[in-house]
Design a protein around this nucleic acid. Structure first.
Lengths: 189, 189
DNA sequence: CATACAAACTAACAATTGTTAGTTAAAATG
DNA sequence: CATTTTAACTAACAATTGTTAGTTTGTATG
């Protein structure tokens, strides 16, 4: 039975290095050194550097797609759907902050899977925008430019991978609540 | 008189490529090809690849520092200071979307200037946080976690470089107003 | 104990990297 | 017109890159 743990360990360590320096700046020798082995030994577990990147990014992108699918079909108000999106991002990001860095910053270095990734992202943003537009029509959400609303919320959620590691005194649920408060209700008194 | 234009052109083209692929993935040959010359010819105008990155990032970081300094000393309410910060980001980003990508994504590849950059950023964030805390104390801003408020606003402003190029039908002033509306007053009706 | 296999190793490769040296042609300067 | 400067070029370098081939070592399995 092949030890799948070692592969996972390699991918996790790679994600950590990718977060610090970006995919292109991390060499297979960097990665091997971090793991205490030689570069050639990595190839007993992974098939290429590109294969590592693909494993990191695609699984995360699919998790977001699945999450959005659940939210879409969840007979909730638009505002509650937005709150669920916040929870989704906090949850996935808290689970894998390193990988989220690659998802955000290294997706353009995907080769074979680039089109697939872009398709997932496009579809996610389309669903997100649809929720906001529905909320505006139903008078739940203030009459504003829906793209700016999505841009604003999504930018914050996509940056979570940078902030969550610094603030682990805050638990996930609490963070989701405070974030929803600020993003949805604003800060003006 | 040395032609300073050519240097500017090289730096601008480099910023454009850095935005697409990141600093590490762009080679001097890529850059030269984009300009229609050979890699070695670049060195008549710049002293190193690192020199290009430094020129892009440091000037932008100093522009933000200057802007924040003006806002700090501008006897305005906290909310109005925040609105001025939005305008500052929209203005600088609209002027140089390519460079802002490097500021956001490639700062860690600075070598000699890394400490200086980090110092500027830290100081900027300290001032930003201070404005929010003052606003909370003076009852202008809702009683919330000031770090989350800053994180949320700053994440959105830092992502502007991705969105502004897609939306140039929106003029800067209009964008600043709508963004302030969403970020400060929220979206809940 | 014999065998199979997982996971490390050494050595090497071809390609690519940033950069330097030296040269050339055209344009600016006196 | 003579000279200097600018900005391109060719050729080459030493280092680093991802990856492959072949080998060794320890650990389970039968």
């Amino acid at each position: 039975m092949k030890q799948e743990n070692r592969r996972e360990e390699i991918i996790l360590t790679a994600a950590k290095l990718f977060k610090e320096k970006g995919y292109s700046a991390v060499t297979m020798r960097d990665l091997a050194t971090e793991l205490g082995i030689k570069a050639a030994s990595l190839y007993n577990h992974i098939s290429s550097k590109q294969d590592i990147l693909k494993s990191i990014i695609i699984s995360l992108a699919e998790a977001f797609t699945q999450g959005m699918s659940d939210i879409k079909s969840s007979n909730e108000s638009a505002i509650n759907k937005l709150k669920k999106i916040v929870v989704l991002h906090v949850q996935i990001t808290a689970q894998n902050t390193y990988g989220m860095a690659s998802l955000n910053n290294d997706w353009m270095h995907l080769e074979n899977q680039l089109d697939y990734y872009l398709q997932l992202r496009k579809s996610y943003e389309r669903d997100f925008l649809e929720i906001i537009k529905t909320g505006i029509k139903s008078n739940e959400i203030i009459d504003s430019n829906p793209e700016i609303v999505m841009f604003s919320i999504l930018s914050t959620l996509r940056s979570l991978y940078l902030w969550i590691p610094k603030k682990d005194e805050l638990n996930r649920e609490q963070l989701s609540i405070e974030l929803s408060e600020v993003l949805i209700n604003g800060i003006n008194k």
